[in-house]
């Protein structure tokens, strides 16, 4: 464990909690892409199946359980409890254009042609594009609530910190996973436009406008 991975995980956890609390407290999921949240639930489910097969550490197991729990709780709040506030018209990204190519790629390019490894690879590739429906929705509505921008900032920051974690691990441990690294770079690049606006526009005060 190194400082980049720890802060990355905490940033990811913060993002997940921020979103869940925002929906729960405001009793509304306006401006939130339910499709992205479904994709994240799929990402965690397909990546953390090893919860059933291997124990790495208490930290590892706890975080995985929390991620999966919060992901499904968020999907439940969006599509069941606060369904009336779900903005389906603006959440119109065709996720099949993501899932199908990602599924195909994970069968073609992976480290090992075993079910668990292919599912892990699928989850890595899917996570790199899972935020697109949310970014697409914001570009359609032209704005986002301030709390949603903080959620996106933490979410984007987590994988950027993981990039530093992989540099650290390559240098100190000789560990690197090309699939995770390439997908992580793609994932972080997708946030660049948003990061630029988040930092320059300083719109902590007013809604995020494209």
């Amino acid at each position: 464990m190194n400082v980049f991975r720890l802060t990355g995980d905490l940033s990811h956890l913060a993002a997940i909690i921020i979103l869940l609390l925002k929906i729960w407290k405001s009793r509304s999921c306006a401006g939130i892409s339910g499709k992205s949240q479904i994709l994240f639930a799929i990402v965690f489910t397909t990546r953390y199946l090893d919860l059933l097969t291997s124990f790495i550490s208490l930290y590892n197991t706890c975080m995985k359980v929390i991620y999966i729990g919060c992901a499904y709780a968020t999907v439940y709040l969006i599509y069941a409890k606060f369904r009336a506030t779900y903005d389906g018209n603006h959440d119109s990204f065709r996720v099949e254009f993501l899932v199908v190519p990602v599924g195909g790629l994970s069968v073609l390019i992976n480290h090992d042609f075993s079910p668990l490894e292919i599912l892990w690879t699928f989850s890595i590739y899917l996570e790199s594009v899972a935020i697109l429906p949310q970014l697409f929705m914001i570009s359609k509505t032209g704005e986002a609530e301030t709390i949603t921008t903080h959620y996106l900032f933490c979410l984007g920051l987590y994988r950027a910190l993981y990039l530093f974690n992989w540099i650290w691990r390559f240098y100190f441990e000789g560990f690197f996973d090309m699939i995770a690294i390439v997908a992580g770079v793609v994932q972080t690049v997708l946030y660049c436009d948003f990061f630029y606006l988040y930092v320059t526009k300083g719109w902590f005060s007013r809604p995020y406008r494209l």
């Binding site: 995980d9 090893d50 975080m63 441990e173 000789g174 690197f176």
Partner: peptide, 10 residues
């Protein structure tokens, strides 16, 4: 570089 595959990352 050599690749160590241990899934200890989240």
């Amino acid at each position: 570089g050599h690749l160590i595959k241990h899934k200890d990352e989240l």
